[in-house]
Design a protein around this nucleic acid. Structure first.
Lengths: 154, 154
DNA sequence: CAAAAATATTTTAAGGTTGAAGTAAAATGC
DNA sequence: GCATTTTACTTCAACCTTAAAATATTTTTG
């Protein structure tokens, strides 16, 4: 009976902590790097795929809509941080890739980002961090399989 | 040295879990209740304050900008779910309050919301939920005092 | 092969979000 | 008391976000 309340309380706490930290990251990105979290996320995904990603792959990885990525790519492209190149053999598709300038800029941002997080979570010991990460991992996979089951059940 | 990496990993995991759940909640609110998370949040805050809240109190509680609440209140008001009443003695201020219809509608939504969360976190035992909530609480307060210290240091 | 279906992306409309600028009213200071 | 500052709120411009519609291209199918 109270299980639901305990879980709800956990959820509200998670939401509060994550939103608070996220807001701080957004503000620092804006003030210190003149960018936004969605832009950072896009560049981060691209930096993990130096060969570039198709628009649809990118929106898949980031779990956002296609149209969303279009707009962000437009703006990053205006600033010369990413480039669009055609996919040989499929004239519908486009590959998005960090430019040299984009790689450099992202490296700077990522360094700062890691420091911010380290400071924000300074109260969590590395061991605790590893343990909690593992537990969250368990949720995530459990939640996903649950989701699939529900989807299949319909 | 690797402490920063451990904390970063924890952060990315937290972000992933919370974003995933949040997205699911958003979608369910949209599809099953024809509303949005920000609207739900506003109504939730108002339901905890039956006497109503001034616009500025509301944006303070929700930690969003003033202008933000204005827009959401406009739309909720159009649908008759909240009402604005003047504050006697201060013609600048406005009290926002759930209407009867708003209270009823929010009660429905909150019931469903609690169930969704309970299902999503079904893999977490009540005891684990309580323990994690407590730990997160510790972060939050630690992070806040850290923030204040940094602010003071400048 | 031509019609139909599927795929990749962009555009659009509606809402959410912010910081900054604008308006109005109240409080403060001289 | 009146000028200044502060407070409460709204408006604005820019960006993020989505689902749905529109475009263009490729694949499938009859």
């Amino acid at each position: 009976m109270s299980a639901a309340k305990d879980r709800l309380r956990l959820w509200l706490r998670l939401l509060k902590v994550v939103r608070g930290m996220e807001q701080e990251v957004r503000e620092k990105l804006r003030r210190e790097h003149n960018t936004t979290l969605p832009r950072f996320d896009v560049m981060s995904a691209l930096s993990r795929h130096p060969e570039g990603l198709k628009m649809s792959q990118l929106s898949g990885v980031l779990r956002v809509s296609n149209g969303n990525v279009t707009g962000i790519a437009d703006r990053l492209s205006d600033e010369g941080l990413v480039e669009r190149t055609p996919v040989p053999g499929d004239r519908r598709a486009i590959i998005l890739r960090l430019t040299m300038a984009g790689q450099k800029e992202f490296a700077r941002q990522a360094r700062a980002h890691e420091e911010w997080i380290d400071k924000m979570l300074a109260g969590v010991s590395p061991a605790d961090a590893r343990e909690m990460a593992e537990r969250l991992q368990a949720f995530a996979t459990a939640a996903e399989s649950e989701e699939k089951e529900t989807a299949n059940a319909q």
